[in-house]
Simulated assay, not measured.
Amino acid sequence: MGNPQAVLWSPDPDAPAPAEPAEPAETVAPGPVKETVDEVPPGRPRRAVPVPGPLDGHGPATVLAMCNQKGGVGKTTSTINLGAALAEYGRRVLLVDFDPQGALSVGLGVQPHQLDQTIYNLIVERKTTIDEVIMPTSVDGMDLLPSNIDLSAAEVQLVTEVGREQTLGRCLAPVLDRYDYVLVDCQPSLGLLTVNALACADGVLIPLECEFFSLRGVALLMDTIEKVQDRLNPKLEITGILATMYDPRTLHTREVMTRVVEAFGELVFDAVINRTVRFPETTVAGEPITRWATKSAGAEAYRALAREVIAR
């Protein structure tokens, strides 16, 4: 797979002028319902994805690393809401907060600074077991492995460890048979913690903001994934690329989305996460959007993503 080269170009000269009031696609208001239901921006036909049926049992889990070294692209929001949507479809899910900022924990209503046991203790203290750290969430079937700022010290402490890249995998191994999916929220860097997540993952899910600078960083992430595949984890695959913060009202966003589809093709999920004020509200509430705004467009988008993830 070649690295994407982000370039901007002029819009199609045959397209209607944006100033024309009769053309809904370029006005301030969102496009017609048909565009968001039957088509995938920027016009790729939607692939048929079946509604997943119930399971007879649980496990072994598929481990997905939510990874992008650029911050602010929706990794944590996508981890929470994808996990909740998977749980709605009867899958047991474990969310792993692998970022010292603890944003995933905060987004689920947990105060990281008040925790006595976090994933840091699990990594550096042999006497700590994973069952002592796992917490239930408000979503049935979804548990949390929390984190706080202590995790920032783990990267330094792991440097001298033998097999340091496999530490997270060893910690998660005892509970993989209990869950159907383990979603690891990585920190916005390509350091040792992120490599640990990639080394134990079955797939990588890349949230990609529909913005020019986000495209530039994907090439570096792809290089890191290839190195992990070659040296640490041959089974690692790219599960898909999720377009986030999509705004159909802007030409720039649509152009970036077009470039992403051209560069990655079938890897790009049909589900697209639009910009909405609902997501900041859910962070304050400590709830996933599937519970806070059940019938919102954002909730339906993450349910569509969950169906695609299960189908892949």
Score class of each variant (00 low, 15 high):
V228K: 01
M257N: 02
E262Y: 11
L168K: 00
V268F: 09
K235I: 13
C200Q: 09
C171Q: 13
A243N: 03
T167E: 08
C171F: 03
V184W: 02
V175W: 01
A197C: 11
L215G: 05
Q229N: 13
L192M: 14
N274V: 00
D247M: 06
G191W: 08
Q229D: 08
G265N: 08
V204T: 10
G163D: 13
V184I: 15
M257V: 06
E255F: 07
I273W: 10
A219N: 07
V277N: 11
M222C: 12
A199R: 02
Q187T: 12
V268D: 01
L198E: 04
V256D: 01
V182R: 01
K235V: 14
A199Q: 02
L192C: 08
L172R: 09
P188N: 13
I238Y: 03
I241M: 13
T194Y: 01
V284K: 13
F264W: 13
Q187K: 07
A173L: 12
V260H: 03
F279V: 07
R275K: 15
R231Y: 15
Y181I: 00
E266T: 13
V277I: 15
V184Y: 02
V218T: 12
V204Y: 07
T276M: 11
Y179G: 00
E237Y: 04
V175F: 04
T282L: 09
G169E: 05
G240A: 07
V268W: 05
A271W: 03
P234D: 10
D202E: 14
E226S: 13
T253C: 13
N196D: 03
R164Q: 10
T282W: 01
G217N: 08
R170Q: 12
D270L: 01
T258G: 14
L168F: 03
